[in-house]
Write a protein that binds this DNA or RNA. Structure first.
Lengths: 274, 274
DNA sequence: GTCTGTGAAGGGCTTCACAGCT
DNA sequence: AGCTGTGAAGCCCTTCACAGAC
């Protein structure tokens, strides 16, 4: 085997090891990979609902706001055990707590980022992390022209400090935002520093030891897939420039008036699970 | 229906429309969604191989360098028709051309980006696009503090110019790098401007008309999934801080000496298709 | 012998439809 | 009546194993 996730995901057989696992969580294994991805998406919507003061939400509403079908959503949630009340719906904040716990977000994750170039700096300054339970605690680069500079409220440190810093900071996630040809080396260093979650924005596929989880986001791949799907949709030969009048029905399923969605509109799930 | 891709992908039934399609391409439909994603990944590796002067590559080698299994790779390529020579392997540049054509990358895609904040500027400056067949032709923002400024060799224009500019520039792909609450509005404008491929980095799920393809990359989701998978791997209660000595076998499957991969190592496929 | 292409088997995920609770 | 939870069916995809071409 050389695969990461057998792409079809898998309810994880049971890593042997700890068999009598911790208390609160009834079933953490046996959650399909695809479901996990969507749980993260639901979580975000639930956060909005909480902010908005909504207490109860139906599967139909939550599903619409998340861009999935309601049956799929109910199935997904059912993997966490009973979460709603029949005839009523789901308790928003309770459900949110349940998902957070399941995803392991209750222990606050600390993130280090390697590669303080354009993308790295953008990611460092990206507020979405903190807002969703991740704290950026370290920035590293190998270029002396960048090390020492301040990005947000963090100073860029030299990558040689990575190992020690990761342990001191108790980092749990490493993000790679370096050029492609440095990615594997940086990855090795992150693994060496004891991290077991790695998110890479380089295009190269990384190889990591068995116990390390890695994911990759390749922007060019995203666009290429987009390109293909579009070509396929439009019947392959998009000659005629789009007409000026684009008046097609388009569903408004914003939170609040999410409802039975009419007909001809699509919503995008996260790329990871359309 | 409110779904985008029924998540399981689908070999596309046939959009009716053009039935006697263009010449060269024998079968463009009927390619599984999952395969499309990986084709984009293979393409990148093939590019490296070309640069490197390699002429022939075996499924085993290409697969290893792409982070997938060789059987899967052969199956994927088989959807494009015969591409290799039995007992020999694949002609690198021929295969590359075939995939490019299939993905519709031969017509050069032109990309406009909305949202010239941190992320937007980083994306605009990201060389990976051009290197892989996409040309960034326009940058837009709504903030007067940013419009007019130069990012790379493009000036940031006001979003009100979007519609006209898209048509003049013949853009085909729109990228959204705005704050979440502006995303749907920007998306609407892009669609209004005639684009039918949209890539969004906002967390909100966008709704688009039937004929538009949209994808979304949500960084927080990526990390949350990472978090979960890691928790699952490590037996869920990662109490003991990682030991100092991390000496595990790790496969080196870089291009060139890609080979029969030993044992205990994983490689990450693109997030989109692990 | 080597390596591709592919039918068939197996598994995961989605969808449907309804049982069951309030 | 309304909405959740879930077996079962079906689909898509992966994996296996080998036939077939060089």
């Amino acid at each position: 085997m050389t695969e990461q996730h057998p792409t079809q995901g898998r309810p994880l057989a049971g890593v042997s090891g700890a068999e009598g696992l911790s208390a609160a969580t009834p079933e953490l294994r046996d959650i399909p990979q695809a479901t996990v991805t969507r749980l993260a998406a639901y979580l975000r919507v639930l956060g909005l609902l909480v902010d908005q003061g909504t207490h109860i939400v139906s599967s139909e509403e939550l599903a619409a706001a998340s861009g999935v079908g309601s049956a799929k959503l109910r199935k997904d949630l059912s993997f966490l055990g009973p979460n709603g009340v029949r005839g009523v719906g789901y308790d928003v904040s309770r459900l949110r707590g349940r998902i957070e716990q399941t995803l392991g977000l209750d222990r606050g994750h600390k993130v280090v980022l390697v590669g303080a170039g354009n993308l790295g700096q953008a990611l460092a300054g990206y507020g979405g992390f903190g807002r969703r339970g991740f704290e950026m605690v370290g920035l590293f680069d190998i270029d002396p022209a960048v090390t020492g500079t301040q990005v947000g409220d963090l100073a860029v440190r030299h990558i040689d400090e990575l190992d020690q810093a990761c342990r001191e900071l108790e980092a749990t996630i490493g993000v790679i935002a370096t050029p492609d040809d440095a990615a594997q080396d940086v990855c090795d260093r992150l693994v060496g520093a004891g991290l077991d979650c790695i998110l890479s924005f380089s295009a190269t596929s990384l190889d990591v030891p068995e116990h390390v989880e890695s994911r990759r986001v390749d922007l060019a791949v995203e666009m290429q897939v987009l390109s293909f799907n579009s070509a396929r949709n439009t019947g392959q030969v998009p000659v005629s420039p789009p007409a000026l009048d684009h008046t097609e029905p388009r569903t408004q399923v914003r939170i609040g008036h999410a409802a039975h969605v009419p007909s001809a509109a699509k919503r995008n799930g996260s790329v990871i699970a359309p």
